[in-house]
């Protein structure tokens, strides 16, 4: 019979338990230290709140005592800037935040980019962008050239590069957009300046389908109808997904496409296209809206029937067109 290694097991179990206890103590010390740091952070913010307000919102004169002296105060500063950037929009304040952050937080984030783990690097990148720390633009570009960056970092690096070097962004990164998720592509495109975005719209025919979708979506999201000609032109595409998105963009823009586009959409064999078309009807003059509604009133898809029903049920509708046509449709 095999001898059971009881002693071994005992050593392992006791050893692990001791290790866990040591870790518990370590963690408790860490907690206590964290609590102390919290006190310093709060004190810094309370002490300097008025001065911060004066610097950022009134005079722009940085006072010496605002400069953080330790990591806890640095964290406090980070919190304050974060809260402001997310709640207040002002070029002046952004400029002042950027000036101060370049001076006091630049090195801190440089270290985080070099030595930190993934979480710390992502945090640093978010802040570099939010606070406009352009003194780190070079580091970020170097990082972007590396092949090992994670998806999240890559996306943030693109945003940073776009913020600090907008002029050359589209030629350098247009091919990179395909590597992003569609949500990230949209976010990137949406946060672009109109000038830069128009550059991209111009080249849309040469972009991969996924990027095209995002561009079309963002045209709608930007609520700027000046690009609707481009949309009409793209509608001749045989890509159904693209066509649906184009119609959705028209809906977001609250703008009617050319007649042939609308008719093509109504007669499409994709229900999503017909639904988007139906949603455009309220922009039509009442008479043609009723005519078109007749085509879709008995559509096979319930959402389209629902849309038409809801549209015709508007009380304002009755005065505009003869009641007979509407009431026959409402049934």
């Amino acid at each position: 019979m095999m001898q059971l290694p009881i002693e071994w097991l005992l050593v392992i179990v006791v050893g692990l338990l001791i290790a866990l206890l040591v870790m518990t103590v370590y963690m408790m010390i860490g907690r206590a230290r964290e609590n102390r740091r919290q006190v310093v952070t709060t004190a810094y913010l309370e002490r300097n709140q008025e001065d911060w307000y004066d610097y950022l919102c009134v005079d722009g004169i940085p006072r010496e005592e605002l400069i953080p002296k330790n990591t806890a105060e640095l964290k406090a500063l980070e919190e304050l800037f974060r809260s402001l950037v997310h709640n207040i929009k002002s070029e002046e304040i952004d400029k002042r935040i950027s000036a101060f952050a370049n001076r006091c937080l630049g090195n801190f984030y440089r270290d985080a980019l070099r030595k930190g783990n993934w979480g710390e690097r992502v945090n640093a990148l978010s802040r570099i962008r939010d606070f406009g720390i352009d003194s780190l633009a070079k580091e970020c570009r170097e990082m972007l050239a590396r092949k090992t960056v994670s998806k999240e970092e890559f996306f943030l690096l693109l945003l940073i590069d776009m913020k600090f070097n907008p002029e050359t962004f589209s030629e350098r990164h247009i091919g990179n957009l395909d590597k992003l998720s569609s949500k990230d592509t949209k976010e990137l495109l949406f946060s672009m300046s109109d000038l830069l975005f128009d550059q991209i719209v111009e080249t849309i025919d040469h972009l991969p389908a996924r990027t095209q979708y995002a561009v079309v979506d963002v045209i709608g999201m930007k609520l700027n109808a000046s690009r609707s000609d481009k949309l009409e032109q793209l509608f001749s595409s045989s890509d159904n997904e693209l066509r649906i998105r184009i119609l959705r963009a028209f809906n977001l823009l609250e703008r009617l496409p050319a007649d042939e586009v609308l008719i093509a959409a109504i007669e499409s064999d994709r229900w999503q296209e017909r639904l988007q078309a139906a949603r455009l009807f309220h922009l039509l003059p009442a008479h043609s809206a009723v005519e078109y509604s007749k085509i879709l009133a008995d559509d096979e898809h319930y959402l389209i029937r629902e849309e038409i029903r809801r549209y015709l049920a508007q009380p304002a509708f009755e005065v505009q067109v003869d009641n007979e046509a509407v009431s026959s449709l409402r049934e």
């Binding site: 913010l45 307000y53 919102c57 304050l80 809260s83 402001l84 997310h86 709640n87 207040i88």
Partner: peptide, 12 residues
């Protein structure tokens, strides 16, 4: 809910 932003609004 954001304490810091609230502080700024109060000062404004």
């Amino acid at each position: 809910a954001d304490r810091l932003f609230r502080g700024f609004l109060v000062m404004a």
